[in-house]
């Protein structure tokens, strides 16, 4: 399979509308000789960057999370792992290319690596089904989790998927039950689990590999119950309300941190991870190194992880005289 090391250059075609002015100024800077004019352009660039990136809307973050040039799982593993030995197949008859599993070496230790790869080139995207796993992919991940537990290896997962694949075959092979089984087993894995959400954390398809002792998420990544477009369709009956849906759903890293559903936000410098993949990879490496350091101190236990997810959610406990007691005196319900 084509490796994803050919990256396009950020240009008019691959850029987002709010990136264009930044690109224009950058082009001007390149053409301008050293001097006052250049200095002015550089400070204009800084101002423009700040204005855009300090005031990103939820929808702009959705666009950044899905950016054509956003670094993918393999862009990270190639940079932060000294070696990677890929393990193929779920041992039940399939090998889903949307999910990559294998043994990685990181700063002299062995890790189990699991992740979703969306693909970079058109050929790779198709081969990897745009990072949308079938049940075979989740079973492949589960096999890796079980091996990691047996070998006492910490697990690192790279989450980047629009969704679990919605399709006839996926349903026939048990997409729902397979994701459910992954959730159940991943929670109980006896070795530490570090999860990082790179771009899109798409619903149950992401969750099935994202239950970690420590879940880190990039600043411009999103993690959603369903794509904003679909939410807009369902609740507003209008796909054009996607921007409204994106802000209503609270899809951004800082909002999710405030809701206690992730543990850390990894900052993205200078216009997003795609503008500087090296820095982004470095951020993951530092977070992972810290996580493994905490492993050595025995900070993570599967019991704590299980307790964390058992407590998830926000609800109220009303005093018993206030909540409605459904009685046998039914009224005729009015139609909605």
């Amino acid at each position: 399979m084509a490796e994803s090391n050919e990256r396009g250059r950020l240009g008019l075609e691959t850029s987002l509308p709010f990136e264009r002015r930044i690109l224009e100024i950058e082009a001007l800077i390149e053409k301008t000789p050293e001097g006052d004019a250049r200095g002015e352009l550089i400070s204009e660039l800084e101002r423009e960057r700040e204005t855009v990136f300090q005031n990103l809307t939820a929808w702009q973050r959705v666009q950044l999370a899905r950016h054509a040039l956003r670094p993918r799982m393999l862009d990270y593993t190639r940079r932060i792992l000294e070696d990677f030995f890929e393990l193929h197949g779920d041992r039940l008859g399939g090998d889903d290319a949307a999910v990559i599993t294998g043994i990685g070496r990181f700063r002299g230790r062995t890790l189990m690596v699991v992740g979703q790869q969306k693909g970079v080139t058109t050929e790779e995207k198709v081969a990897r089904n745009f990072g949308m796993p079938h049940p075979e992919g989740y079973r492949k991940a589960l096999r890796a989790f079980r091996l990691a537990e047996r070998w006492r290896l910490p697990i690192v997962t790279f989450v980047d998927t629009p969704a679990a694949h919605p399709g006839i075959e996926a349903e026939a092979h048990g997409q729902g039950p397979t994701i459910a089984q992954n959730l159940l087993e991943m929670l109980g894995v006896k070795t530490p689990v570090f999860a990082v959400i790179l771009g899109e954390g798409g619903s149950g398809g992401a969750l099935a590999i994202a239950l970690g002792d420590w879940v880190a998420m990039f600043e411009h990544a999103i993690y959603v119950i369903c794509p904003p477009e679909r939410c807009a369709e369902i609740l507003w009956k209008d796909v054009e309300k996607k921007e409204l849906a994106a802000s209503a759903l609270r899809v951004t890293a800082r909002e999710l941190l405030a809701l206690n559903t992730i543990d850390a936000v990894l900052p993205e410098s200078g216009g997003g991870a795609h503008r500087n993949p090296e820095v982004a990879a470095q951020a993951v490496a530092e977070e992972l190194a810290w996580f493994l350091g905490e492993c050595d101190k025995g900070r993570w236990t599967s019991e704590q992880r299980r307790e964390k997810y058992q407590r998830m959610g926000v609800w109220s406990e009303m005093p018993s005289d206030e909540y409605r007691v459904p009685s046998s005196e039914f009224r005729v319900p009015s139609e909605e």
Binding site: L183, S203, L249, R306, M312, G313
Partner: peptide, 22 residues
């Protein structure tokens, strides 16, 4: 499916209930 109005918290209920089954 999920209660969309609770966003990510409703997604987390999948993990939460799976843990209860465990």
């Amino acid at each position: 499916g999920a209660r969309m109005q609770e966003g990510i918290l409703s997604l987390m209920q999948m993990a939460k209930t799976a843990e209860a089954v465990r």
